[in-house]
């Protein structure tokens, strides 16, 4: 690998890192897991003047759950840690379903959850989960901390709202309104391939009533798609095959796929419909079984 020349810095504190970003003035990129950045450097798609390696920053590798059920994922928490976390298996089904489907096992040992969301690849799994879960990204800059809803965080392909001197330090998933249910299905040609299409579903249930829902789509548009209408159609009533069909149809309508070598546009739309329906049906069946 022969990337263009760049300056490399490995700060020891968040303050130092932010100072370096200010110094870089938009020419600096943050290196966390490096699983997207390094290939881009290799292909010379990216030529940042400076890399700010945050792997030495203390206190950013946490994966915790607050007393109220809020889940916090630190900027240096690796995919693999999430995949193996009992906390996630027990409390967060959407994340648990997606974790083993992120990239491939090698990437998962180094790549980070927050880095994936920041990278804002329309093919990214975690941005979709965060949108479906009404999650937020906490960023720190010279002026202090702020929280940005995942829905507003990604502004386009490979673009987010962070200022050039801000660092995303944590992803926050709010507590469920009732019981958290959900799932994630991805069609890929091979492990590690970008998704032909993928669907993230998060549904909060109180009894059999849907209290909150989120559906987000991957690989079927220029950016991660928030299928708001599909999710809203579920809220306020129990899951039923009619409701599921309607939501799946609305999700398919929300998709904006293009034909490419992974599949035709109409096929990708069909997969969104099929996967939305499959996840919701699975939730419905397991709810009925429990009842």
């Amino acid at each position: 690998m022969y990337p263009p020349r760049f300056r490399y810095e490995a700060p020891r504190s968040l303050r130092e890192a932010i100072t370096l970003l200010q110094e870089g003035g938009g020419e600096a990129k943050i290196l966390a897991g490096g699983q997207s950045l390094i290939p881009m450097l290799k292909l010379r798609f990216a030529s940042p003047g400076m890399l700010v390696d945050i792997n030495n920053l203390p206190g950013l590798d946490h994966l915790t759950r607050d007393g109220d059920g809020t889940i916090r994922i630190g900027a240096l928490c690796r995919h693999e840690h999430i995949e193996r976390s009992e906390l996630i298996t027990e409390h967060q089904p959407t994340i648990a379903a997606a974790a083993p489907l992120v990239a491939d096992p090698i990437v998962r040992t180094r790549g980070t959850f927050v880095g994936s969301v920041c990278h804002a690849d329309p093919q990214g799994d975690w941005a979709a989960c965060m949108i479906a879960l009404d999650g937020a990204i906490v960023a720190e800059g010279p002026g202090g901390r702020r929280s940005i809803a995942a829905r507003d965080f990604v502004t386009g392909p490979f673009q987010n709202v962070l200022a050039s001197d801000e660092i995303a330090v944590e992803a926050v998933i709010p507590p469920p309104q009732g019981e958290a249910r959900g799932g994630y299905l991805k069609l890929e040609r091979r492990i590690g391939d970008f998704a032909t299409a993928a669907v993230a579903v998060a549904v909060d249930l109180r009894g059999d009533q849907v209290t909150r829902a989120g559906i987000a789509l991957v690989g079927v548009g220029g950016t991660t798609i928030d299928a708001r209408d599909a999710a809203d159609a579920l809220v306020g009533s129990p899951l039923s095959s009619d409701a599921i069909e309607r939501a799946a149809e609305l999700a398919a309508e929300a998709a904006q796929p293009r034909s490419d070598h992974r599949g035709s546009a109409s096929y990708k739309r069909h997969i969104v419909r099929t996967f939305t329906s499959r996840i919701l049906t699975q939730i419905d069946r397991s709810t009925q079984k429990a009842a």
Partner: peptide, 22 residues
Amino acid sequence: LPDRVHQALTTGQDVSGAPPVD
């Protein structure tokens, strides 16, 4: 590829040539 098999299944027609490229 799955979309080509699915296309054949739903249309009953053969699927020829290389997959579509945008």
